[in-house]
Each structure stands twice: as C-alpha cells, then as structure tokens.
Design a protein around this nucleic acid. Structure first.
Length: 588
DNA sequence: GCCGTTTTCGGCCCGACTGTTTTCAGTCG
C-alpha cells in the first residue's frame, strides 16, 4: 500500500505557511506540529484510523483529524483548496525561504501586486521594493541573496559528509589554546540522516572572543562572511567537492555551556516542548541557563544533565531529541539505554575482490583486526545474478569457503565467517540453492533488480527460507538519488518477527537503510537488527559509527542489535530460525 | 489550530540580531 503520510504532511506544512502569511501564527504552529507528527509515523496513517476508531496523538485534535479523514476519503482537503486561493502559488514556497519572512512577502504582495518569483526578483532589482515603508537597500540585497542561496541550501548534505566537514572544523578550532571547549551542535549532533547548516559552539574567555572569530573567518575554506560579532559569526564554507554550506560559530562562557549545548542541539520541537514543561514548573530555559521565573535565580546551565535534571528529567541523548516521546519517557525515568559503538562485536556485510570489493579477504581481515576490536567479520560477496558486480556462482563460492578456511588457519582462529549477499530473484526465490546456503555462516538476502514494482512479495518469500538471516538494505533507497522501491515495511517487519529473520541497518552514507523511524518500529515489534557497513573498501568500516547513530535514533538498545552478540550467540539466532523454518541445524 | 487535576477559555518558548527606525518590527535558530 502506498504510504500517504508524506503527501498529507506536505499539505499541512503548506497550510502552515499560508497561515503564517495570513498572520495567524498559532494556527500555523498547530499545522506544523501536526505535519511533524504525521511525518514521523512509521505506518500509513490510514492504519491508525480504523472503523471510525481514532488513535490519539498529541498535536492532532478534532479539526485536523477531520481533515485527515477527508483526505483519505476524497484525496483532497477543502480547507486547503480554499486557503490556496488567498496566496499566490509561488509564495507558498517562498514563505519558508530563509531570509524572507511572511510579513515582508505580504507587504510586497499587497502594495505592489507581485504574484510570482520572477516578478519578485524584478521588483527587488528595479527599486520598487526598496521604496516601500520599512524596506531599504540592505534588506533588498539580503532578500535577493536569499533567493539566490535558495537553490544551494535546498540540497541537504549527507550525514557522513557533514560529520567529515564538522570534524575538520573542530580540529582547526582546537588548535587555538584560547578555545577551552568545542562541540558540534544542531542536527549533526542529533545525527539526522541529512544536514542543513552546521552549528559549532565554543567556550572561551571574553577577552579571547575576537581572536577566535578572526581566526575562524580566515580559515582557507571560508568563501564568504555573512555576519561577524563577538557572540556569533556566520560564514559560507566551500567544501572540497564544491558544495557550499553555512557554518555558525558561537562563543559562550563556561557556566552557560550546558544550556547552550542543549539549546543549539535542538530539535526545535524538542526545545519548545521542554520549555513548555519548564514553564509549568515556574522555570524559564534559555541558552544561558535555567532560571526561576519569580526570583530570577539561576538553578542550572553549566551541564546539559543539569538542565534536564532541573525540570525533573533524565538526560536525553541527542539522537532522541525529536519530540517523539522522549520527553515523556525522561520525565518517567524510562528512557532506553541506547546501543553504543563500543558494543559492536563484528561487521556482517563486507565485499572482497571475490566480487566487487577493492581488497582481498586477507587484507580486510588484517586491517579490521588491527583497527577494530571486533570478534568476527562476515565476508558477503554477491551471488551470480549480479554480473556487473562479478557475483559468484556455486563453484566459486565453494572455492571462497576453502580460501577462508585457510586464512583462518593462518590467523589462528575463526575470525572470518563466510557469508553471501544473495540476490532475491523476481519470483522471490534465491540466487543459490539451499544446499549452498546451508553451508554458509550467514546469509544476507537483498533486492538489486526490478525497482519499479512493489517488492513486498519477493522479500516476504525470501524470509520464508530457513537460511536467510537478514534482509539487506530493505528499501533500496539512495538518499537524494532515487526513492526506495515500493515495499510494505509493516508487512516485512511482521514477517521478520514470525520467521526469526533480522533486518539490516545499512550504514552506507547514501543508504541509511532502514532509517530511524523504521528502526523504532522494528524495536517496538521485537524484531532484531544488524548494523552493517556493506564495505567495499577499507575506509568504509568507519561507517559503522553512522549506522549505530541511526540505531540510537530509533531507540535501539544493545539487545536489539545482533552484532553486539558473540558469534556463539549469533549462531543461536541462526539455529532458532533454521529449526522453526525446517532447515538443517549448524553442526548437524 | 491544540491543550488542560489550578483552566473548556485563553493561553501558546525565548533571546539576538538586523535594518529600519528614533523605539521597534521582522526574522532566525
């Protein structure tokens, strides 16, 4: 079933923009919040509204529920159709554009009758806008710049690339002895899958502020300085691959550090919710600390833990701060203990030169043993249908098994496990017969063809096979390149639970598949997950960090992640499925 | 628009900066 959540959320975001334009800010906020809630639902919204029975969500009340129902039944929302007539079509998009606000747009629309983006640019350039009351040359310049930057900023950066860039900037700032503390905040710290701007926070003495800001704007990668002060400086950085990113640097006092970090890590929804609760308790939270409203006394701010504690909450890990229930859980002291990078005991999806990897199995094993504290790795080269990836046929995978046996003898123990990333064929059967699969330590089954059809049936059938242990990159999406193939992940999760099959969190920067929303759903359903790098070269083993981050964003604990287990424990998982689905047990 | 064991009406996060003003509105994060 095609998931309508995204379409519905988009409509509500647009309605919010229109209400902003109409100066009805509270309504706008209500629609924004509803859109956010719907976007975060793993299941199709129709599943929550069955037979007139409505599941309650915070932020969706009677009126918005009625509109959701109307959309489900008719494919339209009449209120939206009505609202659209009040705003020029181009403007709905422009209202969300950073640098131009709804008030300015409204004035330009009302006084000059401007209705399209092209007309707006023309009126800005020929001086008509400048003559309006409240406008001036600077404002006009900034609006033009905002329009120009729009196309650039619209493309968000992949988490991995943002991490590389922000790590570099942090390392440069650490070179100054005046920088006492430095941390990346914002969506990078929350490990969102894609990143807009980069926020960096620093602790320093007041007298050193100028020196730090001067140093920052002189970094060779800085292409343009958007604003420079002693508290905040904004620049445009040009990355090595030619992309442009806005980076904000802010300096705080040590006693403000926790409050600043909390505030600038966001998310916005999380912060708003947190402050509402603080307010109920007679407290005020800003980026400098937590204060009692009546006396103005500061009661927290030096550490993030202190900020949360002051309102009666446990510390909330940054990856959870999306207002998806973490605030309630923190108040009730029932936040999960999230999985950590150090819990990972092995990588279970790796390609070698036997198929399309760049390194020999021997080089991979030596490299991983030297750089990671893993207990095992699983080599999972492609199967024969993947001709372009030099997939292995039956004869060659038997040879690969022998090769790995020899290498393990050299290493002195069974560090290398033999697996396969076996193709799921069009009819849901697998690219290897069961006799071969039964000889393998671990089987990843993936879809690499027919992306346009609904592939739920293929995946469900593959999971019925007793030797398939995990479904690789379950949606097949490439972020910003192609959408995933149509697949009913709800049914996949159900079948995974039923058959004892795991689902992969593929850590490749472009994949991040499955994502945090579905991880959370899988965790709730008790389905096990595997965090894998799908490495094709030695540098890719680092992607495990990103995979763990996605797992954490999905509320996963150590027990939800299979590759936090010893190999003996993994084998138990394998045998449980083989037993249940009628396969040959390990060692039998 | 949503929400509520103090409220079903009257609230709805908070501060900095910018550009335009001469005390403030608009915008951002």
């Amino acid at each position: 079933m095609y998931n309508i959540n995204k379409d519905l959320a988009n409509i509500f975001y647009k309605m919010a923009a229109i209400y902003e334009f109409l100066d009805d800010n509270f309504r706008a906020r209500a629609y924004q919040r509803a859109a956010h809630v719907i976007e975060d639902l793993p299941d199709d919204i129709r599943n929550y509204i069955q037979g007139g029975k409505i599941q309650r969500f915070r932020g969706i009340g009677e009126s918005i529920y009625a509109k959701i129902k109307e959309y489900i039944e008719t494919g339209k929302i009449s209120k939206y159709e009505e609202l659209k007539k009040k705003v020029p079509e181009d403007f709905i998009e422009l209202i969300d554009l950073p640098g131009i606000g709804p008030k300015s747009l409204k004035k330009i629309y009302e006084e000059l009758g401007i209705k399209t983006k092209e007309e707006l640019i023309k009126a800005l350039e020929d001086g008509r806008v400048e003559k309006l009351e409240g406008f001036g040359p600077k404002k006009v310049q900034n609006m033009l710049k905002a329009l120009k930057m729009y196309e650039i900023s619209k493309r968000r950066m992949l988490l991995w690339h943002a991490l590389e860039l922000s790590d570099y900037l942090v390392s440069q700032l650490k070179k100054l002895k005046e920088v006492k503390k430095v941390e990346v905040a914002g969506s990078i710290r929350r490990r969102k899958i894609t990143i807009g701007d980069i926020d960096i926070l620093v602790v320093a003495e007041d007298k050193d502020r100028k020196k730090i800001m001067d140093y920052f704007v002189k970094l060779p990668e800085v292409k343009e300085v958007l604003g420079k002060g002693l508290k905040k400086t904004s620049v445009i950085i040009k990355t090595s691959n030619g992309r442009e990113r806005q980076v904000d640097l802010r300096i705080f006092k040590n006693e403000e550090w926790g409050a600043a970090l909390q505030y600038f890590t966001g998310s916005k929804q999380h912060n708003v919710h947190l402050r509402e609760i603080a307010k109920e308790k007679g407290l005020k939270i800003n980026e400098y600390g937590v204060f009692k409203v009546d006396t103005g006394e500061k009661i927290a701010g030096e550490t993030e833990e202190g900020v949360y504690k002051s309102v009666g909450m446990d510390f909330i890990p940054p990856e959870l701060r999306e207002d998806r229930g973490e605030i309630e859980a923190a108040l009730e002291h029932r936040l999960p203990k999230l999985v950590e990078l150090k819990d990972i005991k092995g990588d279970m999806h790796i390609h070698s030169t036997w198929s399309d990897g760049f390194n020999s199995i021997e080089d991979i094993a030596k490299f991983v043993k030297e750089h990671y504290k893993y207990e095992y790795i699983v080599i999972t080269d492609h199967s024969k249908s993947q001709r372009v990836a030099h997939g292995l046929d039956e004869k060659r995978i038997l040879e690969e098994i022998e090769e790995i046996k020899k290498l393990n003898q050299l290493l002195g123990f069974d560090f290398i496990k033999i697996g396969s990333e076996v193709d799921i064929l069009l009819d849901g059967s697998l690219d290897f017969p069961d006799e071969i699969l039964a000889k393998l330590d671990w089987v990843v089954a993936s879809i690499h063809s027919h992306f346009n059809r609904d592939n739920t049936d293929r995946i469900l059938k593959a999971m019925e096979n007793p030797y398939v242990n995990v479904i690789g990159h379950p949606t097949g999406r490439l972020i910003g390149v192609r959408e995933g193939y149509p697949v009913d992940l709800e049914a996949v999760i159900k079948k995974a639970k039923e058959t004892g099959t795991a689902l992969e969190i593929n850590s490749q920067p472009l994949r991040m598949d499955i994502d945090d929303i579905w991880v959370k759903k899988a965790v709730e359903e008790g389905v096990k997950l595997v965090i894998s790098t799908d490495s094709h070269n030695l540098g890719s083993f680092e992607y495990m960090k990103a995979g763990v981050a996605i797992a954490r964003r999905g509320w996963a604990t150590k027990k939800d992640i299979l590759n936090t287990r010893s190999w003996k424990e993994v084998q138990k998982f394998i045998n449980e499925k083989r037993k249940r689905m009628g396969g040959i047990l390990i060692g039998a």
